[in-house]
Design a protein around this nucleic acid. Structure first.
Lengths: 230, 230
DNA sequence: CGTCTAGCCTTACGCCGTAAACTTACACTG
DNA sequence: CAGTGTAAGTTTACGGCGTAAGGCTAGACG
């Protein structure tokens, strides 16, 4: 038995394997459950071995966040700037929903360092798309802030709401959770909140994406009008 | 010497004193520097004593977040709904900037529990102001999401950018930091990003608030138009 | 064959949150 | 007054965290 029948034959650790396993762990249990010891165990290795492929935990976290940011689609420039930006924004929204732990880390990075390349590429793409469409530098300045903050901010906002709904106990049916919330809410004191929660119960699936695009359209419409009146 | 000349005479711990000290610690060193042991030391007490006034660390954190949310001004209903909502939003923005650790915790609460009273009051106020202005339930549903996510999301977005600028090394002059960033940026690859960073250098102080209101106005204008065309 | 080196492991340190058991101080009751 | 109950603070201890320091081993290369 010359081959890998023995437990001795371990597939060697690589930075890729480490990062991939880290993303898997974070996807499954949230970023706070990503631990050097647990990650090592997952890879059949001791914790300190990870440090041969990763400077420290901050470096590890930064790296996996970069991988997620790298998933964002940056469409090649088309004729319709609104459509291009919307496609990018929706793609970012989806990527961040796939990895719910990443959004908070992009918004408030723990370790401070030079902005990583994937984030730079994304920023440059958005700025370029605006400027080449004819936006003035001044309008682009504000438009970028409004767009980027909506993409990241709304997504984290949505995640905060749905995660808390899912986590509050085992049941992952959001409608049922909101229903329970409604029943314990003193509806007399909060009639409009009760109405709002009720709307969430009856909302169709995929409602989060629709809300995201509602706010996005508000911003894009406003920008379009601002550009035309300028 | 019957009075408090002796070190024995300690002002007794109360929940208020604990929460107040916790906010002070978090304001100074960020939420991750808020530790039961450090907080106790700050109060001249042992860590375990805190548990007489606070269920656990999650309870403590929830409580101080609630205090911050409670600082948000909810104007009594005036004639101009845009002005009322703007006042509330700006007040929330300011409160969250005063306590930079709070925004992330409101957006993605660590401990899950029933929504706390201050948050309920805030939500109800905003929903009520929209509905009583004449917004349909459907439009209110989306308007609330757009507004709340902008208030929290943009603020966290802004904090993430300014904090990373401040923390990267000792100098707290943001312009100087951006300048350093600019010099190390391969400007040939990122011309628009360089332009954008340059704008930040020359931006007047208080620019964050202006950006916040730019996005807010975009949303409010869109909502106003949506209500009129409906 | 000897030596170098990269990759992994072992041990250890100082943090963290907090359970459990204790001491103390005081208020109330007989 | 003594006796007792209770609330507040302390001590000790446990398991988990990130990671510094150093040891071990297997293959590469002269």
């Amino acid at each position: 038995m010359p081959a890998d029948a023995d437990s001795k034959a371990r597939t060697p650790l690589t930075r890729e394997r480490v990062l991939e396993a880290a993303i898997r762990l974070a996807d499954e249990g949230g970023i706070e459950s990503l631990t050097m010891r647990k990650l090592a165990r997952e890879l059949g290795v001791e914790a300190m071995s990870l440090y041969n492929h990763v400077a420290n935990k901050g470096d590890l976290v930064d790296a996996i966040v970069d991988l997620v940011v790298g998933e964002i689609e940056l469409p090649s420039t088309g004729v319709d700037w609104v459509a291009d930006i919307k496609r990018c924004a929706v793609s970012a929204h989806e990527a961040l929903l796939r990895h719910p732990w990443a959004c908070g880390l992009v918004l408030s990075p723990g370790t401070i360092r030079a902005l990583p390349a994937p984030r730079l590429r994304y920023m440059e793409w958005l700025l370029k798309r605006l400027r080449e469409t004819g936006f003035s530098p001044e309008l682009t300045y504000h438009a970028y802030h409004a767009l980027d903050s909506h993409i990241l901010g709304f997504t984290l906002w949505q995640l905060g709401h749905s995660i808390s709904a899912i986590d509050v106990d085992g049941s992952k049916d959001l409608a049922e959770l909101v229903d329970k919330f409604l029943r314990q809410l003193p509806a007399a004191d909060y009639p409009y909140l009760a109405e709002h929660a009720q709307q969430h119960v009856t909302a169709p699936s995929g409602d989060g994406a629709r809300q995201f695009e509602f706010g996005l359209d508000l911003i894009l419409d406003g920008l379009k009008r601002a550009r035309e009146t300028a």
